[in-house]
Write a protein that binds this DNA or RNA. Structure first.
Length: 494
RNA sequence: GGGGCUGUACGCUAACCUGGUAGACUACUAGCUUUGGGAGCUAGUCGUCCGAGUUCAAAUCUCGGCAGCCCCA
C-alpha cells in the first residue's frame, strides 16, 4: 500500500508522459525499472523474466555482439550452432554440472497432447549437447585445437524475482567451447579471451570491472577454475560480468572426448568455456544513467547524434533545409538523426533525447545559421559547446571519444571509491551492511571461512583480483586469522 | 527458502471501505494556432489482468491463476 501511495505521489508531480520520476540516488530499483522501460530500451512481456528488446536495446546488443564476434574470429574461433533442446540423459552425464543447473532447468515434456518418452531440457548452457558432438568430431591431435563458439539464448528458471537484464530468465550470450591437446595450451587461451572481454566492456560499454579468479565455491559447475570480470552497481551490489572457465578434462571424461596424440596414446582433451551476455546492458544502464534518463555510450548507440532544428513560421523552410544539409554531412561518418517532428517544441525534444540517452545533440536555428556555427550538447555532462560549421565532423568525432572515456572514468572512480580495506571482520560486516560496495581483504582459502563470512555478513567472495595478489605476504585471513593465501573481494551480489 | 504489498486506457490516478451510469490528467488521432528547455484551443479513439464463486447486480466481496514490487535469509 505504502508503495502504491509513494508511486502515486510521484506521478502526481506531473504531466510527464514518459520521463523518470525518481532520483537515481534515492530509489535505485524504481529508477532502474523506469530507466530501462520508459526510455524504450527494453520492455516487459507476458512471460515472467522474459524481455522484449526494442530497437535501441537490440542495436546495443547487436553492436557489442558483432564487435566481440569479430575479435573471436581474429583469434581463430569459429561459430557453430546447436539445438536449444537437450535430452535428459545427456544433461545428466557430468555430475557436478547437473547438480549446479538442475534446479533451474525448464523442461519440454509434451508434443501436442502426447507425452515424450524422454524429457528435453531447454538449454541452460550447451556443454552437454555440444560435447556429445565433439566426441564424434575429434579423432586425432590434428583436429586440435577445436575452438568453437555459438551465439544463442539460454533459459535458467532459478529466480523468484527476475530483474530485467540483470537477472532475466532468458538471456542472450555467447558460449565459447574450446578443446586442446594439453592443459598448457588450453591455459594460453585464458588471457586472450579475458582481454577481449575487457576491451569490449571498456571500449564499447564504457564499463570498468575487476578481473580475477573465482573461489572453488563460486566457480562454474563442472569447472576446475573460473575467472570473471565483476562490476559494481550504484546500489553497492556486485554483479558478475563476462567469465572464463578452465574445465580441464572433467567434461572430456564424462563425454569421452578423446584423441590419438603424436605419441599414439589415446588422451582426453583439455577444455575451456567462456561467455558474455545481455546482462552487460543492464550493468551499463544502471551505471551510466542519471536523473534525466539513461546514457548510451556512443559506440553502441543506435543514434549517436540528434539534430534538433529550432524554427518559427517565417524561417522554418530555411532552418529545416540547413538541418538536412548538416545531416547529409554528418551522416556519412556518424549515426545521425534529424528530429523534424512538427508537433513537439524544441524543449520537449531536448528532454526526450536526454531521456533516451543519445550521446550528442545539435541545436540548429536562425542564430546558428547566421553565425555559421551550431550548439553541440553532451549528454554525459550537459555541457553546451559552440562549434564552427567548418570544424563540425572533426569536433564531433573527438567528442564521441571523449564521452566514452568520460563515462568510463566516471564509473571507474565510483568503483575505486567503493573498494574498502577492512582491518577486521567487524569492519567488513559494517561496510557490507551499509551497502558500501566491496571489501578487499586477505583470506585463508578455506570454504569454511567463506561460508561463515557469507552466513554472518551476507557477503560472497566475488573474485580474487589478479592485480592484488602480490600484497599477500604475512597477512592473516579476515575471518579465522590463519595465514592468508589470497586477497579476496567480498561483496553482496545479484 | 520465508514474509508482505499491488494490479482500472500507453502512463499515472478516481470510484473499492459502504456492490448499482467507470471519471480526471497525460498520451494517441484530426484540425487550427504555436515553436531557443516538456505550448494552447476544439473534436475524437482507447480501460476494470485472467478464471471461477457469491449476488437481481461485481472494478468493488471471496477463492484460484498470472504478472510486478518490497523486506528478511
Amino acid at each position: 500500500m505504502a508503495d502504491k501511495k509513494e508511486r502515486g505521489e510521484k506521478s502526481a508531480r506531473g504531466d510527464r508522459p514518459k520521463g523518470i520520476t525518481v532520483k537515481k540516488s534515492e530509489n535505485f530499483s524504481e529508477w532502474y525499472t523506469q530507466a530501462i522501460t520508459n526510455t524504450e530500451f527494453v520492455d516487459y512481456t507476458a512471460v515472467s523474466g522474459g524481455l522484449a528488446f526494442r530497437p535501441d536495446g537490440y542495436f546495443a546488443w547487436e553492436t557489442m555482439q558483432r564487435a566481440t564476434d569479430a575479435l573471436f574470429k581474429e583469434v581463430g574461433i569459429q561459430n557453430v550452432y546447436f539445438p536449444m533442446l537437450i535430452p535428459e540423459r545427456l544433461l545428466n552425464k557430468e555430475k557436478e554440472h547437473v547438480k549446479g543447473f538442475s534446479p533451474e532447468v525448464a523442461w519440454v515434456t509434451h508434443a501436442g497432447d502426447s507425452k515424450l518418452d524422454e524429457r528435453l531440457a531447454i538449454r541452460p548452457t550447451s556443454e552437454t549437447i555440444m560435447y556429445e558432438s565433439y566426441a564424434k568430431w575429434i579423432r586425432s591431435w590434428r583436429d586440435l585445437p577445436m575452438r568453437y563458439n555459438q551465439w544463442n539464448s539460454v533459459i535458467r528458471w532459478e529466480f523468484k524475482h527476475p530483474t530485467p537484464l540483470l537477472r532475466s530468465r532468458e538471456f542472450l550470450w555467447n558460449e565459447g567451447h574450446t578443446a586442446f591437446a594439453s592443459q598448457e595450451e588450453a591455459d594460453l587461451e585464458r588471457d586472450v579471451i579475458l582481454k577481449i572481454y575487457e576491451m569490449i566492456t571498456r571500449d564499447y560499454l564504457a564499463l570498468p570491472g575487476i578481473l580475477g579468479k573465482k573461489t572453488n565455491k563460486e566457480k562454474f559447475a563442472g569447472a576446475l577454475a573460473s575467472y570473471s570480470i565483476e562490476h559494481l552497481l550504484p546500489d553497492g551490489l556486485v554483479v558478475q560480468g563476462p567469465d572464463f572457465h578452465s574445465d580441464g578434462q572433467n567434461f572430456a571424461k564424462a563425454f569421452e572426448i578423446t584423441f590419438i596424440d603424436r605419441d599414439e596414446q589415446r588422451k582426453y582433451v583439455h577444455q575451456n568455456t567462456f561467455a558474455i551476455s545481455t546482462r552487460e546492458l543492464g550493468v551499463l544502464l544502471a551505471t551510466h544513467g542519471d536523473d534525466k534518463g539513461i546514457i548510451i555510450p556512443p559506440r553502441i548507440a543506435r543514434i549517436q547524434i540528434v539534430i534538433v532544428p529550432i524554427y518559427n513560421n517565417e524561417n522554418m523552410a530555411t532552418v529545416l533545409m540547413q538541418a538536412k544539409a548538416l545531416f547529409m554531412r554528418l551522416g556519412v561518418k556518424f549515426r545521425t538523426h534529424v528530429d523534424d517532428r512538427d508537433i513537439y517544441s524544441p524543449g520537449w525534444k531536448f528532454n526526450e533525447w536526454e531521456l533516451k540517452g543519445i550521446p550528442i545533440r545539435i541545436e540548429l536555428g536562425e542564430k546558428e545559421i547566421k553565425a555559421m556555427d551550431v550548439v553541440v550538447v553532451r549528454r554525459d555532462t550537459g555541457e553546451k559547446i559552440k562549434v564552427k560549421m567548418a570544424d563540425i565532423e572533426l569536433k564531433i568525432g573527438e567528442l564521441l571519444n571523449e564521452i566514452n572515456s568520460n563515462l568510463y572514468m566516471r564509473a571507474r572512480k565510483f568503483l575505486e571509491a567503493n573498494i574498502h580495506h577492512a582491518k577486521n571482520f567487524d569492519e567488513l560486516k559494517d561496510t557490507i551492511k551499509g551497502r558500501g560496495g566491496i571489501v578487499q581483504a586477505p583470506w585463508c582459502g578455506s570454504t569454511e571461512c567463506e561460508d561463515k563470512v557469507k552466513e554472518e555478513s551476507g557477503a560472497k567472495i566475488s573474485n580474487m583480483p589478479f592485480d592484488k595478489q602480490g600484497d599477500i605476504k604475512g597477512r592473516k585471513c579476515i575471518y579465522c586469522g590463519n595465514e592468508a593465501k589470497h586477497i579476496a573481494n567480498f561483496a553482496k551480489s545479484y
